[in-house]
Computed example of a mutant assay.
Amino acid sequence: MRQGRVVYGGAIHGCTPAAGGGVRLADGRVVAEEAVQWLPPIEPRTIFTLALNYADHATELAAKSSKEQGSFLQAQRSEPIVFLKAANALIGHRGLTRRPAEAEFMHYECELVVVIGREARNVRKEDALAYVGGYTVGNDYAIRNFLEPYYRPNLRVKNRDGCTAMGPWFVPAAEVPDPQALRLTTHVNGQLVQEGSSADMIHDVASLIEFLSGIMTLSPGDVIYTGTPKGSVDVRPGDEVVCEVEGVGRLVNTLMADWTPAPL
């Protein structure tokens, strides 16, 4: 059963999809999707994020980047490039994400998100999918002019408040028999701007679990953002971004303008 988390009537509720639309709260009430504030469907313990895990996206960025990027892409093929994300970056379905005033190029990243279901340590690739509890959809925004000089994600790019959407549903692994056969799409204001397949991951889900569990123990609730296909388009305040992963869900997010703190 797909599960989500929402705020309604001043309280946090577990919920499931309601027949005919809307959401069914844990107490049985059915309310409209727009009537609730969506939270990420789980509260992750550790958030792992992959850089350039799709060959077409890596090539796309290399074409826009410096010559040194080529050595980074070569290294990515031999070993996953992984970074950690803080919980403050997460925001739920239908949430608002600020575009920093100094951003020159900010783009979405539609991603399949893996949720670990049981403790995993030194897991072999052939056994790895048995440690997956389920999946959800992610949208991990990047601010390209901050990323360019460093060749890899950094604090200003990937850990801003509300810059990483997740949801709407946690989908049990049994409902996704092959995580490497899923279509990923992004629409901005109704226009298709990104399309790819999880089959094109450089390091597939099982390989990522093997790699990460060989470094540290993975715990239930840990999540892995697995990367995004090509199709980077600059987004601006007011744009509605819809990321969809086949069989997993449709994640809606809207850009808003940056804010200026009030003087003390």
Rank of each mutant, 00 (worst) to 15 (best):
L52Y: 00
E148S: 06
Y151E: 02
L264C: 14
E126T: 13
Y151F: 15
L129T: 05
G134F: 00
A199H: 12
V223E: 02
H203Q: 09
P80D: 07
Q76Y: 14
V132P: 00
P17V: 06
L212I: 15
L84Y: 11
E240C: 14
E43K: 10
Y54G: 02
E60W: 03
D204M: 01
M1N: 06
A26L: 10
L212F: 09
V188H: 04
E33R: 15
A120Q: 08
G28H: 07
A86Y: 08
H203E: 11
V193P: 02
E119V: 00
A63R: 03
R250E: 01
A89D: 03
S207Y: 11
A120Y: 12
P177T: 13
P220F: 12
V252Q: 06
G249D: 11
N253L: 15
V241R: 13
E60H: 05
E244G: 06
V115Y: 09
H13K: 04
N154Y: 12
I12E: 14
V6A: 00
M256S: 14
R144D: 06
V235G: 08
V242I: 15
T217C: 07
V242T: 06
P179A: 06
A173K: 10
E102M: 13
G162T: 03
P220Y: 13
M216T: 15
G28P: 00
T136K: 10
L208I: 05
E111L: 04
N253H: 14
K230I: 08
D56T: 09
Q37F: 08
G238R: 12
A32E: 09
Q37R: 13
P261E: 06
V115K: 08
P172M: 01
A199W: 08
E60S: 03
G162F: 14
Q191F: 11
P100L: 04
E195L: 13
P80N: 05
G190R: 08
N122K: 13
A206S: 11
A174L: 10
V223I: 05
E240V: 15
Y131K: 00
T186N: 06
M166R: 10
G134K: 04
A51K: 04
N189Y: 09
V7Q: 07
A262V: 15
E109Q: 14
P44H: 07
A18C: 09
E119Y: 04
E148R: 05
L73P: 05
G9P: 00
G167D: 01
R236G: 05
R156F: 15
V171C: 02
G227W: 02
P80M: 09
P168H: 09
L212T: 07
V252D: 00
T97H: 05
R29E: 07
H203M: 08
V176G: 00
Y8K: 04
A86Q: 14
D56G: 07
K158N: 02
E148N: 05
K125T: 10
E34N: 08
G238C: 08
P41W: 02
A120K: 03
Y225M: 11
A63T: 10
G22T: 01
V137A: 07
L184K: 04
K64H: 14
T226G: 08
A206K: 12
P80G: 03
E102V: 13
A58F: 01
T217W: 13
N159K: 03
A120H: 12
Y131H: 05
L192A: 07
V193R: 13
R152T: 15
P17R: 10
N154S: 10
I202Y: 09
E119I: 02
P40S: 12
Y135M: 03
D27A: 01
G95P: 03
R250F: 02
